[in-house]
Design a protein around this nucleic acid. Structure first.
Lengths: 193, 193
DNA sequence: TGTATTCCTTAAACTGGTTCAAGCAATCCT
DNA sequence: AGGATTGCTTGAACCAGTTTAAGGAATACA
C-alpha cells in the first residue's frame, strides 16, 4: 500500500511538492485492522487522527444505559476518530472500531501539530475538510429535526447505497436515531409499497 | 464601532501584523440590524459570511409544512449564515434574522477567497473555527440521539443561560427539536420539582 | 455436527412527544 | 384606548417510535 487514497484526496485541494509529500508519508502510520478490532477506546485521550484507506470504520458513543449511538461511518478516504479528544486532550467518549477488515493511516497528535506548523499549506487542506464536514453535520442535524424516521432511512439509502450491504442494521438504526425494531418495521413498510 | 469582537477572537488563534489587520478591516462590512430584520433569505445564494459583533441572530430552515427548524443561535463573536450556500454557491435553504437589535460584520464571498489567498495565515484561523464548530455539532447530534427533550432543555439552559432571556420559547423548542407545547410541559414539570 | 451467540423480525403494550383547539396575557399598531 | 396579532399555556385525543418478549435464521465455535 504505497499510493494512498488520502494523497489523491489531498491533491484535490492543495498541490504538494516532493518534499511535502515525503514528509507527510513519513509521519503516516499505516495499520491493518481486522473486523471488530478497536482503534480508540472510551475514557482515554485519543492519540490519532484516522484516515480510512480501505474498508469501513464506525465511531460511536455508548451512553449510561449501554446503548450505542453512531456518530459516523467512515469509508475509504474519510477522516474519523474523536476530534474533540484529539484536539483538546480530553478523555474520549467515543469508541472507533472496524466494521470490516480495513486499512487505516494514523497521524499522531504531535506530528499533526508539527505538520501544520512546518507546512502551513496543510492548514488550507484541513480548513476545507473541516468546513465540508461541518456542512454535512449541519445538514444531518436539520434532517434529524425535520424528517421522520422513514424519511431519514430513505435518505440514508440514497446517500450511502453501498453501506447497507455490510453495516449491520442495528448500527444503521442507531445512526438514524431509532431502535432496530422500528427500523425493521420501516423496512417492511417500504418493501410493501 | 472600531474595535470588533472579531479581532479579539482572531488574536486568540493567530497574530496579525498591521498590514493584515488593515486589510481585514478594509473588507469587513459593518451593518446594523433591527430586531426581526433578515440578512439572508431562502432561495438565494448566500453572499456573506456573517460575524456577530453585538446582539443575537438566528439561522433556521423552514420545511415544506412551514415549520421552522433552528440550526443556530449566534451571539457576539460567533460566525453564522448558510455555510453550504456560501461555500458551494447553491441556493440557500436557510433564513438568517436578528432576534434583537444587532451589529454584524459581513465578509463577501469574493473578499473571503481573496483574504485566504493573500494572507494564508487566515487559513489557520478558519481551520480552527471550523474544527471547533464541527466538534460542537457532533456533540449536538449525540445529544439529539441519546437524550430526552427534558435533558436537552436542561443542557441548553446550562450552556446558554443568557439566551433564554430574549429568545422566544418557540425558537428554543425548535432548536431542541420539540413543539412549543411540549416545551411548555417540560418547563412546568421542572418548575414543580 | 451440535450448540451458543448474534442479528433480524414480529407482535402487543406502552410512552414521549404531537396535534388540535381553546383561552389568556402581552405587545403592536392606529 | 381598542382591536389585531403573536406568544405561552393547558388539556384531551392521538401517533410515531419504544419496550418487552419471543422465535427463527445465520454465523461462529468447539
Amino acid at each position: 500500500m504505497d499510493t494512498f487514497i488520502l494523497l489523491k484526496s489531498i491533491s484535490k485541494h492543495i498541490a504538494l511538492d516532493a518534499e511535502e509529500e515525503k514528509y507527510l508519508k513519513s509521519i503516516l502510520l499505516p495499520m491493518k485492522m481486522q473486523q471488530n478490532e478497536f482503534i480508540e477506546a472510551t475514557g482515554e485521550v485519543t492519540r490519532y487522527f484516522i484516515n480510512v484507506n480501505e474498508g469501513c470504520l464506525m465511531t460511536y458513543y455508548t451512553d449510561s444505559e449501554a446503548n450505542d449511538h453512531v456518530l459516523q461511518f467512515a469509508t475509504a478516504g474519510w477522516w474519523t476518530g474523536d476530534l474533540n479528544s484529539f484536539t483538546n486532550g480530553e478523555a474520549s467518549i467515543y469508541s472507533t472500531k472496524a466494521l470490516t477488515d480495513s486499512k487505516v493511516l494514523l497521524i499522531p497528535k504531535i506530528q499533526m501539530d508539527e505538520l501544520l506548523e512546518r507546512y502551513p499549506k496543510f492548514e488550507k487542506y484541513f480548513r476545507i475538510i473541516f468546513q465540508n464536514s461541518l456542512i454535512t453535520h449541519q445538514q444531518r442535524i436539520l434532517r434529524n429535526l425535520s424528517m421522520s424516521a422513514e424519511g431519514r432511512y430513505q435518505y440514508f439509502l440514497k446517500k450511502y447505497p453501498t453501506l447497507e450491504q455490510f453495516v449491520p442494521q442495528k448500527h444503521i438504526a442507531s445512526y438514524l436515531g431509532i431502535t432496530p425494531e422500528f427500523l425493521s418495521k420501516v423496512r417492511r413498510k417500504l418493501m410493501e409499497k
